[in-house]
Structure formats: structure tokens, C-alpha cells
Design a binder for these strands. Structure first.
Lengths: 261, 261
DNA sequence: GAAAATTTTTCACTGAGTGAAAAGGTAGTT
DNA sequence: AACTACCTTTTCACTCAGTGAAAAATTTTC
């Protein structure tokens, strides 16, 4: 245990960290890059990236297209599927999501809480164009989206306190931005058993969401995004709650007998 | 340039390769492990894995549960979503798959060719139990499944030759196992425009599949798995072909104006 | 409560990784 | 065809990051 922490300004990187930095250079905005772009974004010398990228390519974590541009490789995708979030949750949820989608013919989504954000795990949509905010993997604020509110409302009080203690960024006119207002809203969510968000995150977008409870703990939320603001929205609520409850029960079942598949 | 190559028997590993080996130790069969298991499977000293795993965890490529067991981290999943196979293909395909699923209420799947296998990219199913063979990410033989055959039939002749030149493992009574029979079958697929496989891979499972053509090249296949062997199967064919063609056109469109989203 | 697993920390040694620089490619422009 | 600009690949001497056996700490098992 040395007296001072070791942070030699910027190049505080192990080989592994550098390799991960190379991978991390790719993003939703720039999912494919040339070698030099990669180096620039990763903040590493080109020669270094050249070597690392070569090894990552060998392991199929990176791949190069005809033009020599790098993008993430199939291996990356395959391994992503082994993540608990996908392997357990998504797989179990699919039938329920599909049924819900079948019944209401609107975009349905599944989200979990990770850190201080909600993350979309799955989204079934008939829209041919996908808004960036709601891509699978997208991180969205807990306080300003229906799925986020559904999760937050049924979380432990200590966690709610943490979130309401943080800055609550405003996205639109109707975004809840004070701890007081947030708590009041969460009370309402708990009372009616689902969240209803009108244009709190994106203008023109309304959504409802219900929590997925597993042995008394929120594990996820299932939501319906209704861009058309149709008035039969209330019709969807029972179907949505049924899906959420069904999934919750299914997850409890799976937890009980580990891996019946 | 030294005279002899450097392969010190077994430990011919760079740091990066070792780190990837640690990640690669996790698998669908064992998606979570203790430190020592990880080291054993990766074939590396425990202390080394301890350090590497620590760094991978820091980068959120690994995560530890309450008991200290390692599994793949959220980052891994997030990055997997940036892979072309997901970001482009799956996202564009979803509306078509959903519509198809809506119309026929059977399990629909999307597969691509990777190396010498087909790989399931997406599967929409109402079944609560997922057979291992047809999980997303699963690799399946080109010659013995409907999606595989649909892809193979419309591939370049040189590729077909490579595949038919390889051993064609038998899975059931009806599996095609000779180059002759394979070519004849592919002819038929080309003629009718879709593949129809009856129990060639898994007993009791029938499937149909149509190729997704993008600018004259097969990019994927859309299939319907019909475990019930219902006789209205032929009713599904037009819907399926429409979905496949629609997706093909959509992909051409996206390729033309890069990223209209 | 002793034995048998784990996981974590330490530390002296050394070769694997480094990155500046040069060479080799590929376009695009005048 | 020569010039410019940017990209990829290779080389190589230096040295510091990574190594892993072994000891210490912790948890699990019987």
C-alpha cells in the first residue's frame, strides 16, 4: 500500500486495458473505423493499435471488411449472448413480449436497471426506422421514462434516495426534475401498479410500463411505446401487466429449478 | 528474422491472447465460473488469471456475482450489439420478422452464413422452452437445415463446391450426405425459390426458409420452424417469401443511402 | 477444529510489449 | 507524372510491464 495513488497523468494503461480501449473505440455512432481512426479515438500510437487490433482480429473480436476498415467481430456478438442479461432474461421474456406485441400491435420493450440508468434489453417494433434513443443497449434515464419509473418505483427506498439525490436532468417541459415531484410520481406509480410517461423524455412520445417482480424484487420492466398517442392506451394496460406478471412468475420458476430450459 | 519460429511448447501467448482466452473460457455450457475454474479452462496460472480477470472486470467485460463467480459483463453485451450482424441486419429485419410471426404464429428465424456454418441471428418464438440447437448464436450445418439450404442454394458455385467437398455429417434418416444428392436438392431449392427441410437435422422438426437477396447476393435467410408439421405449411410460403424479399429490398435501400436510419 | 479447498498479495526477474521512424501503399489533385 | 496527403505495414533497440511460484489470508468441507 503506497502512500500516493498511481495515476501517471494519461498513459496509465496496462496491455489489457489498451486492448479493451481499442475495442471500446468503436461505438454506436462509429461502428466501423480505419486503423488510424481507431488509434486516434483510443488515444494510442498507431503501431501499438496495429499490433493489438491484429491480435483481436485473430480472436475474432474484431473483423475487417473489404476496404480494411475494422468493426467488431462475430465473437464479440456470440459472447455477448452469454451475458446473464441476454441468456436468462431475454430468452425467458420473448414469448411474453411477442404475445403482447401480437395483442396491441405497438412497439413493446424490455428494460433492466444497470447502475443508475435503465437499459433496453429487447425491443419489438414494426417501425422500419429506429430512433437512436430507443435502440437495444441504449441507456436511458430512470426518472424520465416509463420503464425507468416502473423499475424505480419498486426498487429499495435506499436506491430511490440515491437517484433522487442526483441531478435529474430536464429533457422536456414535463420532465420531473425535483426529488419531491419524483417521489410523488413514484407513489402514484406504486398505487396504480404501472408507470405512464407523457413526453417526459422525447417530445411526442408516450409510454406505459409495468414492473417485472421476481420474489418481491424488481428485475425488469415491460413497456409499450405509443408514438401515436392513441386513446385506447388504457386497453393495453391489462395486457401489459399480464405479460409482466407472467414473466415474473416464469423467472421465479426458472430460479427454483435451475435450468429446466 | 530468427532462424527458428518461437513456439515455446504450449505457452505461446501474448498478453492480449491470454486475456481473450480468459473471456473465451466462458461458454454456453458454463456461462459462469469461479476464478480457479476459469484458470483451469483457460490453461493459465491462477495468479495470472486473477490479474487479467481483475482488469477485464474493471472494463466491465467480466462481472462477479455475489458469490464471487465470474460471468461475462454488460460491456460485452453492449459491444456485441455494435457488430454488423446485429446493428445492421437484425435491426432492419425485425419489422419483417414480426409481421411474418404475426401472420403465421409460428417460430420464425433469421440466419446468416459465417464460415462454413449457418448462425441464427434472431428467433421469435412463442415457445417457453428453447431447444439448445436453435438458440440465437447457435451454429448449424448448412446442408441439413432449411435456412442453411436456402443460403447455400443461392451462394456462389465455388462456395457450394467447398461445402459439398467437406464431410456432410448425417443427423437423421433423411439428412442429405452426398455431394450428388446435395446438388440435386439445391437445384430444387433454386427452382422453387425456397428450401423445405423435413427432419434432416432434428427429428420431428420441419422447416421452410427463403433467401434474402441483396443486389443479387444472398445475405441471409428467413425461415419458419413448424414443429407441428401442420399441413397449412404451404400457406406460409408466400408470407415468408414476401418477408425475405421485403428485407432484401430494405437492405439495398440502406446500402444505397448510407444510414438514413 | 483440523484439513482442503479456495482467493489474494508479494516480489525479484526478464522477455514481451513498446512506439518512433522509415518504408511501402493508395488515392486524390493539379 | 509528379506532388500531396493520408493510410498501413515493418523494423528494432530499449526497458518496464507482466510474470508466476510461493506465501498469506480467507472460505468451505468433513
Amino acid at each position: 500500500m503506497s502512500a500516493a495513488q498511481e495515476f501517471p497523468k494519461s498513459t496509465a494503461k496496462s496491455v489489457t486495458a489498451r486492448a479493451l480501449a481499442v475495442l471500446g473505440a468503436l461505438s454506436a455512432q462509429e461502428p466501423s473505423m480505419t486503423l488510424s481512426q481507431l488509434a486516434r479515438v483510443a488515444g494510442l500510437p498507431i503501431a501499438t493499435v496495429y499490433r493489438l487490433a491484429g491480435e483481436l482480429e485473430e480472436g475474432r473480436f474484431l473483423q475487417r471488411d473489404a476496404a480494411g476498415r475494422y468493426s467488431l467481430g462475430v465473437r464479440m456478438w456470440e459472447m455477448g449472448l452469454l451475458t446473464p442479461v441476454h441468456g436468462h432474461l431475454r430468452e425467458a421474456a420473448m414469448p411474453f413480449l411477442l404475445n403482447l406485441q401480437y395483442e396491441c400491435r405497438e412497439t413493446v420493450q424490455l428494460a433492466v436497471c444497470d447502475g443508475v440508468d435503465a437499459v433496453y434489453i429487447e425491443k419489438l417494433t414494426l417501425d422500419t426506422k429506429t430512433p437512436v434513443q430507443s435502440r437495444i443497449g441504449a441507456r436511458i434515464p430512470l426518472h424520465a421514462t416509463a420503464v425507468g419509473q416502473a423499475i424505480l418505483a419498486f426498487s429499495e427506498q435506499s436506491f430511490i434516495d440515491v437517484i433522487s439525490g442526483m441531478p435529474l436532468p430536464r429533457f422536456t417541459e414535463t420532465t420531473v426534475t425535483t426529488p419531491r415531484a419524483l417521489n410523488k410520481m413514484l407513489d402514484q406509480v406504486r398505487e396504480q401498479g404501472f408507470a405512464h410517461s407523457t413526453q417526459e423524455y422525447v417530445l411526442g412520445s408516450t409510454a406505459i410500463a409495468a414492473p417485472v417482480m421476481v420474489n418481491g424484487k424488481v428485475e425488469a420492466a415491460i413497456g409499450i411505446v405509443n408514438y401515436e398517442l392513441r386513446e385506447d392506451l388504457e386497453v393495453f394496460v391489462p395486457a401489459m401487466r399480464e405479460a409482466a406478471d407472467g414473466l415474473g412468475r416464469r423467472l421465479e420458476e426458472l430460479q427454483a429449478n435451475p435450468e429446466v430450459r
